[in-house]
Design a protein around this nucleic acid. Sequence first.
RNA 1: UCCCCGGUAGCUCAGCUGGUAGAGCAGGUGACUGUUAAUCACCCUGUCGGCGGUUCGAAUCCGUCCCGGGGAGCCA
Length: 482
Amino acid sequence: MWRNGAVFQGISRRQLNEVYGALSEKGSFMRKRIAEILAAPEVGEQLQIAGWVRTRRDAAGFSFLEVGDGSSLANLQVIAEQTLANYRDEVKKLSTGCTVLVTGVLQESPAKGQSVELRADAIEVLGWADPESYPLQKKHHSFEFLREICHLRPRTNALGAVARVRSRLSYGVHTFFQERGFIQVHTPIITTSDCEGAGEMFQVTTPSASSVDSGEFFGRPAGLTVSGQLQAEVYAQALGNVYTFGPTFRAENSNTSRHLAEFWMVEPEMAFCDLARNRQLAEAMLKFLLRLVLTECAADLALFDRFIAKGLVAKLEAVVDQDFSHITYTQAVEQLQQSGQSFVYPVKWGIDLQSEHERYLTETIYQRPLIVTDYPAVIKPFYMRLSDDGLTVAAMDILVPGIGEIIGGSQREERYDVLLARMQQAGVDPLSYDWYLDLRRYGTVPHSGFGLGFERLVQFVTGMANIREVIPFPRTPGFAPC
RNA sequence: UCCCCGGUAGCUCAGCUGGUAGAGCAGGUGACUGUUAAUCACCCUGUCGGCGGUUCGAAUCCGUCCCGGGGAGCCA
């Protein structure tokens, strides 16, 4: 227990009291997170937990309460004896979803299923959950149903595990880049530049925009960002290596298990960097993140492995251990043509690879993450660097089994004349990208970067089939309940 | 947005070629039990996704809209 002046994990007792204290009607208390208790159980320790009742089972003269507080997948079993003052009136009426504050002593469990359990000295009910109307039951629910109650779904095992893994991955993204000297840049969410080729923009304006002189709040049409790349390039060409990690918006009417209208994207941008190093960084980053969750989220991954995607952990371990395969677009086309596989869309040099092609490459031929580079210039955006052959650009896609494209990136066109010509070919007005051209007029540098769809990463790591389950509050066409 | 499939009790689903509904789980009551998706008995539950049409009669057939799933496009 706490002693005055003690510091726990760098947090002072006063700070912890600010967070956890004074919640109970019986005065302040010091709850211990179940994850901490189970990580280093001390039999005989007097402690307090607070959490949600997962289930209550009655035995002769006492009840079992399974209590979870979200700190871990595992719950703590509470023994509630009938000698408790409120046993008959309250404890016996506890049901799934109720919130309780339990004070007691940790003891060894005589039965199988758990090594320790909390023998309650007092149980305070903080919140009831009427079993007649509480939607969550002690049984499996479909993810489609849970999506309709996304304010309650993080209380389930699977969605809680997703939230913990997602948080860890987010932390890992920052760790990876910060440890390598990358500067985080907060690129704008409201933007007036369309990152060409990145999809439809949501318009941003205000009903009273007409009261602003030009009729546009920002003096020109504005929208929610579809990519932070162009602005990240600005900072890369001042600070060297930068990254941006923030929300991204696409107004596409996409209805798939891999698309959201609002999602999070990780976009590093490196000055003095070519496509090969860009590729290496992307592979290193993915392996770093996978290694992180394999070691730090093992219990949550085990849940996914068992119930969501059999063999998940072995698959992730294999990705960490193996080198990613790398082929050029031209080689990909040849291999698809020679595969003997018949596709709905015939493979021909010059067409973009379709989903069926990408899946066949990564799932059937290579059976591991695959990097495809050097795509035809005609199917890629103007900012990608034109290669010496004049036909291809220094682009790369990283394809993973089950998801398809998880990363898209390129070396950027740093030559003013070539960039200008590519803009004109693409029908992009150079005047509206004058600031972008300035970066090539003054002290231009070869540079590269990529975009990682964060939710697709979480999907890949958790094995969740639908991207709507790996973001807390999914936004899709016709859906944004809270 | 396009193609295919689906929408029936709180949840997961059954309901053949039209005759206005049923199971398991959950919930309630009781019994039993160091239980752990506890067990046993009894009880309760429905605008059959919305609207319109065909028919004596529609959960069932037709049209349309909404929502979900699978695939595609767009992409991350």
